[in-house]
Nucleic acid binder design. Structure first.
Lengths: 224, 224
DNA sequence: GTCTATATATCGATAGAC
DNA sequence: GTCTATCGATATATAGAC
C-alpha cells in the first residue's frame, strides 16, 4: 500500500469524527446561547445531534469543555470578519465608517455570538480567561483601528483624546445592544431593533456617530 | 406571581414580615445577577438570608415568582432616577447631555440591574413580559426625551431623522456596555471600563457623541 | 409565621458491551 | 468510536410539627 492510499484510508474515520464534532458544536452553540451555561442541558444537546451523549464526553470531556470549545469557535469566526476590512486606501473618516458598518453587520447576523458573550460576562469571563487562543488573537484586532485613528489625528481631522479602544468600545456597544437587549427593548418600547426597515438607517447611524464624534471640533478644543 | 400569592404577601404585613421579604429580595437580587436564572440556587439564597427556604416559597411561591419580584424591584428603581432629571430650562443639546450622563451614572453604579437585564434577554424577556407594571411604567420614560428632541428639531439645531427611541437606544447601549461586557472586554484588552480614571472622560464622551450626532449638519443634509 | 426533614425530579457523568 | 443503561449528586419543592 502506498503512503497516499494509507492517507486516504486513515483520513476517512478522521473526517467522519471531525464532522461529528462539528455537528455537536453547532447544536451546543445554539443550546448554550439560548439557555445560558447552567440552563443548557447536555441531554438536550445530545438528543439534537446525530450522535449520543457518550460521544460528547468522549470528545469534549465535560459540559465545561464543550462550552469552551463553543466559545473558541465563535470568537475565531469574528476574527475572520474583522481581518476582511480593507481600509488602507480610504480616508480616515470613511475607514472608520466601513469598520463600524462591518461590525454592525456581523453582530446583527450572529445572534449566538452576542448571546454567548453576554453569558460569559454573567460568569465574569471565567471561561474566556482559560482560553489563551481567544485572548491572544482578539487583542490584535485593535491594531487596524489604531492605524486609522493615528492617520486621522496626524491629518488634523480627528480629536486626539479618544483612542482606538474607546472607538472599538463605542462601535461594539452600539452593535451589541441591538442583539443583546433586543427582547427587553421590544417588550417595553414595541420596537424590534433587528427589523428590516431599521437596518439601513441604523447602519448609517453608527457611522454618523463615530465620524461626528471624532471630527467634533467643539469637543476636541474642550479637551485641551 | 399569582394574585392570591400577592395577597398573602401584602395583606396586613407586620414590620418583621416586610423586613424578611426585603432581606430575601436583597439576597436574591445579588444571587440571580451573579449566577443567572438557572444558575442561582434557592438553597444558597436561603442560606444567606436571616430566614429559611420554606419562607421563600411561603412568600414568593416559586423560584420564578421570586425572580419576577426581584425584576420588578430593580426596574422600579431606575424609573425613580429617570424622573429626577430636570431639563425644561436647558437648551436641547445641554438637556440631552444631562440625560445621557444621568443614565451613564445610574448604570455604572447599578451592576445588578444591568446583569438582570442581560439575563432576562437570554430568556427572550419571557419573565419581563409577565409584569404589566414594568411594561406600563417604563415605556413612559421616553416622553421626556421626546419633548427635548422635538424642541431641538423645532429650533433647527437637531437633525429630524433620529427619534427619541433611537437616542434612548444609543445612550443605553453605551452605558450598558460598560457594565454588561466589562469582564470580556477587560480579559481581552486589559482595560477595566469601570475604573475611576476613565469615569470622567467616558461620562463626557457619551454627551459629546449624542450632541455631535444630533447636530451633525452633514448627516442631516444627507438624510434629505 | 417558622422550623426540620424529606419527597421527587433531573442533571452531569460513567460503566461496560461491541 | 459508538451504543444502552444507570449511578450519584444535587436541585426545586413540600410535608407536617409547633
Amino acid at each position: 500500500m502506498t503512503d497516499q492510499l494509507r492517507e486516504v484510508r486513515d483520513a476517512a474515520p478522521t473526517l467522519r469524527a471531525e464532522r461529528t464534532q462539528e455537528d455537536i458544536l453547532d447544536v451546543a452553540t445554539a443550546e448554550f446561547a439560548a439557555n445560558g451555561y447552567a440552563g443548557a442541558r447536555v441531554d438536550e444537546i445530545a438528543a439534537r445531534t446525530r450522535t449520543t451523549k457518550r460521544m460528547i464526553y468522549y470528545y469534549f470531556g465535560s459540559k465545561q469543555g464543550l462550552y469552551l470549545a463553543v466559545l473558541e469557535r465563535v470568537y475565531a469566526q469574528i476574527r475572520r470578519v474583522e481581518r476582511g476590512v480593507q481600509v488602507d486606501e480610504l480616508a480616515p473618516d470613511e475607514a472608520l465608517r466601513r469598520l463600524a458598518e462591518a461590525t454592525y453587520d456581523h453582530h446583527t447576523t450572529h445572534e449566538a455570538f452576542i448571546q454567548l458573550v453576554s453569558i460569559e460576562n454573567i460568569h465574569r469571563a471565567e471561561h474566556l480567561r482559560q482560553s489563551e487562543t481567544i485572548l491572544r488573537e482578539n487583542a490584535t484586532a485593535i491594531t487596524l483601528l489604531e492605524q486609522v485613528i493615528a492617520r486621522g489625528v496626524e491629518e488634523g481631522r480627528f480629536r486626539d483624546d479618544v483612542d482606538a479602544l474607546d472607538v472599538h468600545m463605542i462601535i461594539s456597544a452600539y452593535a451589541c445592544f441591538h442583539v443583546a437587549n433586543r427582547h427587553t427593548f421590544a417588550a417595553i418600547f414595541k420596537r424590534d431593533l433587528l427589523e428590516d426597515a431599521l437596518q439601513d438607517s441604523h447602519r448609517r447611524l453608527i457611522g454618523d456617530m463615530i465620524v461626528a464624534t471624532m471630527t467634533d471640533r467643539a469637543a476636541a478644543s474642550r479637551a485641551d
